[in-house]
Nucleic acid binder design. Sequence first.
DNA 1: GACTATAGCTTCAGGTATTGAACTAAGGAC
DNA 2: GTCCTTAGTTCAATACCTGAAGCTATAGTC
Lengths: 395, 395
Amino acid sequence: MARPERRTVRDVRRGNRGMLLRTLYFDGPASRHELTGLTGLSAATISTMTGDLLADNIIVEAGQVDSDGGRPRVLLRVNPAYGHVIGVDVAETHVRVELFDLEMTEKARVDYSLRPSHHDIELVTRRILAGIDVVLADGQVPADRVLGVGIGVPGIVERGADTLIHAKTFGWDGVPLGALMRAGTSLPVFIDNGAKTMGQAELWFGAGRGAAHAVIVLIGSGVGATVVADGVVMRGSSNSAGEWGHTKIALDGRQCRCGGRGCLEAYIGAEGILDRAGVPTSTTDWPAALGRVLESDSRVIEETVAYLGMGLANLINLLNPERILIGGWAGLMIGRDLLPGIRAAALANSLAQPGNATSIILGELGPDAVALGAATLVLEEFLDTSAPLRLHAAS
Amino acid sequence: MARPERRTVRDVRRGNRGMLLRTLYFDGPASRHELTGLTGLSAATISTMTGDLLADNIIVEAGQVDSDGGRPRVLLRVNPAYGHVIGVDVAETHVRVELFDLEMTEKARVDYSLRPSHHDIELVTRRILAGIDVVLADGQVPADRVLGVGIGVPGIVERGADTLIHAKTFGWDGVPLGALMRAGTSLPVFIDNGAKTMGQAELWFGAGRGAAHAVIVLIGSGVGATVVADGVVMRGSSNSAGEWGHTKIALDGRQCRCGGRGCLEAYIGAEGILDRAGVPTSTTDWPAALGRVLESDSRVIEETVAYLGMGLANLINLLNPERILIGGWAGLMIGRDLLPGIRAAALANSLAQPGNATSIILGELGPDAVALGAATLVLEEFLDTSAPLRLHAAS
DNA sequence: GACTATAGCTTCAGGTATTGAACTAAGGAC
DNA sequence: GTCCTTAGTTCAATACCTGAAGCTATAGTC
């Protein structure tokens, strides 16, 4: 029932230009000649379009390759210095702001620590805005060369006329972060759930590259997932799709911090694993404690493999992905030791056809990828529209 | 990472024409003037495009409405007699072939019963081909006025160069039904899983109309789901997405006929419910037996509500649909009596934000909708491309 | 019954797109 | 220095949507 939008000839250009840019971004550098093959466009179109992009300084020449017995090919690539993007990670204990060039090379970063239960929205907004000024100064990038700011936040991000954030652990209930940011900066702002931005980072720059159907599973103290269908992050009707952690795997099962019972998170979240192992809740160094459990407690290890395998099998059956990535600090620890067992458990619990079609691997990016993924939201918009910089810098 | 296809100006026309046709199909009849508002296209474009479609006889005039003090509006609608579509339901006990006009009014149907465990692919193919001839004769429709044949089959439908079908219960392991059909008819053939075609029918003509994000849940003796994201049926990487029935809801739970343990189907499939109620497996009239259980066995009722509510809550959390439809013969029986309880259980087990955003209702179409949905596959293709009839009638 | 207002619809020039074909550019081989 | 090969550009042809102007068909009015 997808009723597409009206289209005009200009949309054709926009779409083709976006495709060309994406091709150069991911498969570049490439010559005009190679681009005809990669994009399917004619040499004439490639010629005029690359001419435009060169004039706009969005792409630049990148040397030559001689072709045996003919005119050498001029390589083209996206100009990494054309613009910069900013990514922000709003987490339990810190606000981190990072500045990247278009190739996602980090140019500057700044961290502000937050005291637990001091997540006042005004404070967080001030930190973000201050952080933007700091990284721009450190990176010596003028504000009018910034394409936008992406922000990864905890909780559910409701996209509408105004972006509202519901984050129980922060005491945020419908906080209008988008409006607050617009009051403090003229840069375009993109906001999404931190687990989704991290998934987006893995999809674009990590182990998810090239996958059209994938699930990126994040296991930390909480558990979440980014579902990718047909190359696009699935959002659902109110942008809360991917809440995998509170999927129930048992009727009247273990108590979860969400208030429910039998949530997957209560079994395979870091807190759940430690609790099952009888580690006292007063422990502060969770990674170390989890490491000890994963080295010694064979019962807990066995259970963890079984529960995680079952959870992944459910994803496989329902979504039929070609690839599942396991990420998050706890996920990477678990996966490093137990991946073969997890794979076997997932296969045993899934139907044969989709089970065999799915590869289960570890994420490549560390837990620091939230800000990178948030910045990727800006990059995505830029590659699709290649909107000229002046437009928002002026506003 | 969606890398779109190259586009040309002709794609613009194709897309807009498809949109116009869809608009007329679902919101028609409408005048040219109204269509400008509904499609966003200019009056000039509407004029030329409707001119084309009228010349092709794809749309027809449908009376006039006088406008106060001006030229009356000429109403346009899709010509229901422009072409016909055929839908086929290949099930455990029968092969059913139905002929529809473009408005999906049934014009003829024929049923062939299959003996259990006589699902030889050659036999089934012969039945389908014979059925096509019969309904065309009965409906007095020449073969060159048929836009195509849609077939709903059990099992997993692997779409590739050749459509292969894996249906354990039929003993089909990679059966090339597409190729076999092409050998017997020149009509275009579309094949999909029967649960998906039924979901498609609900989405287009039943309780799913207008939903962009929905899940259509089918409960019969087996359990399946059709996941709709952004208006499109989700297929996954090998077209097996939607296998909800073998989602595990308990570690080492009830034995399922798939060989696994703890599958949702083993709890809320008709067979699973009857088994939990202690109804002997020799029972032949399942619907009657299920009816008795749902009237009298309060323990089983309570459990069923709990398990189904939990299963639905998992869908809500993971997919964030705006609507969930419960269908299938057993699903309709269960839902008729227990819907309020199921809603409450689903809400109790899901996160607040997506839970409140999801409405859970019953399907509108009976279990007969498999063939209708299969025919809809052809209709969908027609509305998108409005490919002239001659092309395939000639081949 | 002619005239006018009104609303629906069509035609046409103008602008934007892609494309194939012809053409120019740049290097190597003999 | 001529020819071959490969890379890239220019241009006429074709297709599309749109705004503006014009045409058509009705109701109301005198």
